[in-house]
Amino acid sequence: MTAAYQPLLTVEHIEKYYGSPGAVTKALRDISFDVEEGEFISIMGASGSGKTTLLNLISTVDTVSAGHILLNGRDITAISDDEIAAFRRDSLGFVFQEFNLLDTLTLEENIALPLTLQELPPRETDRRVRDIAARLTICEALKKFPSQVSGGQKQRCAFARAVVCRPKLILADEPTGSLDSGSSRILLELMSDYHRDPGATILMVTHDAFCASYAQRILFLKDGRIFNEIIKGEKTRSTFYHEILDVLSLLGGDAPC
């Protein structure tokens, strides 16, 4: 007998409303999709399409108005406040546009922070920090503070912090939004590399077509609904990039980057 198929993340008919009765804004309307383990998925859309709202719901930063989100079969919309912190700590990794590094900590300590929250032995923490730093080529900046390094190094540090705990799901919100093109490319190559080995599951929100072209699958949001979905498959990244631009031109709204 084979085990029942279960995607890593299942988003079921979620809705999100803001405002008060009589003046309701529907940010998300009946969104449903699955994310397989080891998949690199991107969510695109114009400003106000609901990308960040969707990310906030998956990351439990915000709560759904209706629907369910299941991670490994567990409904994260129904877990208690006490469990949310543990869920984020053990299952999620975050990368933000503004890096969200702690200014008072060195890069090394920023990376170590989630491991200290998991109460890993200090030596193991140190070893894992050095391993990931070597892989993301930021060893020479480990002793520096965020204010002393470039944006690219900051974002690599933020990515290292997101993956150092080996989370089930990595959530990235416009990770290249504050980077120059060179740094963006390096970060995306590293994310792609990390997706291949050890097979991390990444869900990235972006409005940058080049950035999205690194994903395997892209969901397009428009006015709070899924408008389209494209899959990279065996296509080259360049072909996929042009396909994204085509969809974006259909989508309207922001000019594609």
Binding site: V61, R88, F94, L102
Partner: peptide, 10 residues
């Protein structure tokens, strides 16, 4: 806010 996102309890 960052610490909460990283999973530090209240």
């Amino acid at each position: 806010r960052i610490l909460r996102q990283l999973g530090m309890s209240e």
